[in-house]
Design a protein around this nucleic acid. Structure first.
Lengths: 330, 330
DNA sequence: CAATATGAAATACATTTGTATTTTAGCCTC
DNA sequence: GAGGCTAAAATACAAATGTATTTCATATTG
């Protein structure tokens, strides 16, 4: 049941005061509790809430994480407006065990950086139209937007949806963005890979799809991620592709995809029927929609390189370790 | 002895990585230490350094701290563009003991709020010219600018420097701003209170001083603090004033100063030789330079009230407790 | 008005963090 | 290469923090 409004306000105020005392004032929880006349346990909970809801936010100065030269190189090499790297963490002393954890980190790191980027973007244009893709990185991004309010912003998926439902689904992603910011969300209520070329035509003719695509094309920024083309890839795991299709696509030269558009090592859309069945903004359209590529995880290295060659992206947010590998290739 | 440059960079990188693992990645210090191949104690120190040097900064979302009516009243009463209050914390159950801590807290709180303000300002005009004053509040402000990059910004002291060197010195403040943001810093390489009226003329004639003042006048925002006029005031403690001068100034009606300009309860510059020896932007010039007054600590109440009457400020950032007291007076 | 649900206080305890001390390893100086 | 210096590792311990449990007061509901 909904909490009383006064109580909620009172609560948020207490939260802010506790947070100030603790984080800015440097009091410990006990002292802060005494000061506020409540128990330490309560202060502890308040602080937890404050972090979760974004009343307090912790930022790390991106200067001197040591990747500025890398950022510049990548930006210049691929003609981007900007390139942001998260800190490189790769040099762990105990090689094997960490790789899983590391991958998770990459998603969070890139998600956090992307969230910060969006925050800045919304600060300058609060009525922005923001295109969104799908996947784990995008999902992480939505989780780290606490405290961002943008009731006038509109989030629009630049692609159709998954059939299987998961937190990575464009539908969920857009919803999460809208909820986090108080803005509006729009999705394309069709699968993003149609069953046949004919089906695609029918779906594409839908007014709601046309409207969504139209809105997506006018985005002032669009956050999209890319996929690698392997048996482990999310596309496969979500059953959007069959094993045979993967083999075919690879045979056609495909090394990765963005929003279901498969491209080869040179960043060109490959000649394969699947590419005729995708319901999403194309590579050129993404560029016009100010696409920002989010790259998390070293398994995406090859796909990332190819994607950058395609020229679809205006900007790049990439985890530091993958960026370092990319540097070696260019 | 000065540390090797490479080592320093290496160190700062390690700091950033540790901070990232801990604050963003959510690892505890032990896990982060293992990941980085160093001891937990070292991680602990790195994190401490990271906080102190502003590599990580913790900001608090200022919505709903409950002082909006106070902010509006003060803003309207003194014709300001804006007034920002930090949370009021005065209602501690155990009256006496806290006053010292509270004061320290006020500096930090106002510094944090001012840092957030600057952050926003720089977001809209990255090549801004920013005037700066001196003192503990300004110094705190510089420590809380983590994550702000503004290589095109210029920071210019609106006043001469202290003779005694301290972290509060305009020189240090400007330097800290420049370092934190990557921007440029300019100072007036002269004392801000000359030994005599004649000396002031000579110093003022310096080309570098003229240039600095010129630049300061064109600031798009200037952060300045005010001082109360007591034996405890920073001016006295930094030996910028003799005890006799304080007595004289008080006799002339002075209740406070900003940048060495002494004013009375009505906010008028008092008629005293000292006011002829100050090397700094005057009250009217500060208004033109879009001055924002930073007020931290209840001991500054009277001076703050007078300062606001002077009309020198375009905006105000004040700690909540002092704001509440101010409210009672107006 | 009694029954019940709720949120916070009180309490207790395990974990994490901060800090001091000692030991070790590398490095500079002579 | 011995001596002394420094930074970090290793260790140990005290303080703060996170979390669960029980108890209590208050508000809500039938």
């Amino acid at each position: 049941m909904p909490q009383d409004r006064d109580t909620a306000l009172e609560d948020e105020m207490l939260m802010a005061r506790a947070a100030w005392l603790y984080y800015v004032g440097g009091l410990n929880q006990e002292a802060a509790a005494k000061r506020l006349g409540i128990t330490r346990a309560r202060v502890n909970k308040l602080l937890q809430d404050a972090r979760e809801t974004g009343v307090v936010s912790i930022t790390i100065n991106p200067t001197n994480v040591g990747l500025l030269p890398v950022e510049d190189s990548i930006r210049d090499r691929f003609g981007l407006d900007f390139c942001i790297c998260t800190p490189a963490l790769g040099s762990d002393r105990n090689g094997a065990e960490a790789s899983d954890l590391l991958k998770d980190f990459a998603f969070r790191a890139v998600g956090a950086a992307a969230a910060a980027h969006l925050r800045t973007h919304l600060a300058s244009r609060e009525d922005a139209i923001i295109g969104t893709g799908w996947g784990r990185t995008l999902q992480q991004m939505t989780l780290q937007l606490a405290g961002v309010r943008a009731p006038k912003a509109r989030f629009i998926s630049v692609m159709g949806s998954l059939t299987a439902n998961s937190a990575y689904n464009p539908f969920e992603v857009v919803h999460a963005f809208a909820r986090a910011t108080g803005g509006e969300g729009y999705v394309m209520p069709v699968p993003f890979i149609a069953d046949s070329v004919e089906d695609r035509k029918v779906l594409l003719a839908q007014r709601s799809v046309q409207q969504a695509l139209e809105l997506g094309r006018s985005a002032s920024v669009a956050y999209i991620s890319i996929g690698e083309l392997t048996e482990d890839s999310l596309l496969r795991r979500q059953k959007m592709l069959t094993a045979e299709e993967v083999v075919e696509l690879r045979a056609a030269g495909a090394v990765g995809d963005t929003n279901g558009i498969f491209f080869d090592d040179e960043g060109r859309a490959v000649d394969h029927p699947l590419n005729q069945r995708t319901l999403a903004l194309g590579l050129q359209e993404l560029h016009k929609a100010n696409a920002v590529g989010l790259i998390a995880g070293q398994s995406k290295l090859r796909a990332a390189h190819a994607f950058l060659k395609s020229g679809a992206a205006r900007g790049l947010i990439i985890d530091g370790d993958t960026a370092l590998l990319l540097m070696k290739e260019i």
